[in-house]
Simulated assay, not measured.
Amino acid sequence: MGCGRRCGCWALSELELERARHQATLEENTRYQRHIEELRDELSTLHSTVGELERRYSDLSARYRTTVASLDEVNDTTIRLKDHSTDLVDENRRLRTNCEKLEEDVRVMREELENARTHAEEEHRRRVSSEVSLSRDLADAERKCHVKLRRAHSLHDMDKQHLRHDLDRLQHALLREKQNHQMTLRNLYRHYPYPTCSLHRVYNCHDCYHDPMLLD
């Protein structure tokens, strides 16, 4: 017989190819899972960054309220000191200087607070956009993994069925060839009752006649 689809070597070769394809699919699924874990880690980092910005915003808000309260107290003190004598002019000047400094600090803090609020809003929008994008990528990656896994299982099952069918056919053909071989040997023995056995170098070899496979 030839060494094509009727040979057991072809079935083993196809099985090895299927195993290689299955292993490649498993490795690709592992890469996708690793990519999913990296996306989840990036999302966790974004959550931590937003939390830090929110804490900074809260701290700046508290400092701003404290500074505004101090400024109100200084303004009240300045108003009361205006009614005093000229001996308090230096004190008023000092308080006014402190007031101006506090006002400058309030202005700077207000700018910092506004910048922090703007940055927090931008970071929030970026985080929301990143979450949507990551969720979409995660869903797409999971969908592709499931589709490829189902396709691989389906191809694997189909190839197993084909291999079983070919194996059964080869076994049936081998059994038929054995039967034909035995019939041929018996016919030869019937027509030539004293054949010479090339294996044992004797006439009318009893072992070869009753076990034709020894002559294969």
Rank of each mutant, 00 (worst) to 15 (best):
N115V: 15
L39I: 10
R40L: 13
S48C: 07
C197L: 04
R190D: 14
T184P: 00
P212H: 08
E177R: 11
H210A: 02
R80P: 00
R125H: 08
L170N: 11
D137L: 11
R136T: 15
E18V: 10
R31K: 10
M1N: 03
K82N: 03
D87M: 04
L17W: 01
L39T: 05
D166A: 00
H156G: 07
E103P: 00
L102Y: 07
T30W: 10
H165V: 00
H156M: 08
K160Y: 03
M158R: 12
P193E: 01
R150V: 09
Y203N: 01
R96M: 04
R176C: 04
L60A: 12
Y194H: 12
M158G: 03
T45K: 14
D166M: 00
R56K: 05
H124V: 11
R186N: 10
E38N: 14
Q179N: 02
L155K: 04
R96K: 06
E177G: 07
L188V: 13
S154I: 04
H162R: 11
E123I: 05
Q171N: 00
R125A: 11
N92G: 05
V106K: 08
L170Y: 07
V106W: 00
S70T: 11
T196R: 04
T25Y: 03
L60S: 08
L95Q: 08
E54L: 08
E27N: 02
Y57S: 02
R19W: 09
R63F: 01
Q33G: 06
S135F: 09
T66H: 15
L60N: 13
S48E: 13
V128G: 00
N92A: 09
H119S: 13
K144S: 14
D159V: 01
C7W: 03
H84M: 09
T49K: 08
R34W: 01
I79M: 06
L71P: 01
Y189P: 02
N180I: 08
E18C: 08
H47C: 06
R107T: 09
S133V: 12
D72N: 04
E38S: 13
L60Y: 14
N98Y: 10
V50H: 13
N187T: 13
C9N: 03
H124C: 12
D157V: 07
R107P: 01
E42H: 06
D166Y: 00
E52Y: 04
K148R: 11
E91Q: 13
R164F: 05
L46V: 07
L15T: 04
N75A: 02
T118P: 01
E52W: 01
R65D: 06
P195N: 00
A120K: 07
V147H: 10
H162G: 02
R126L: 12
L102K: 05
S70W: 05
V202A: 05
V106F: 01
N204T: 10
N75C: 01
L155S: 14
D72E: 06
E142Q: 14
T97F: 06
R31P: 00
L43D: 06
R143P: 00
N115D: 14
H165G: 03
L188G: 11
E122H: 14
E52S: 08
S198Y: 13
V132W: 07
T49E: 07
L88G: 02
V68G: 04
L185A: 05
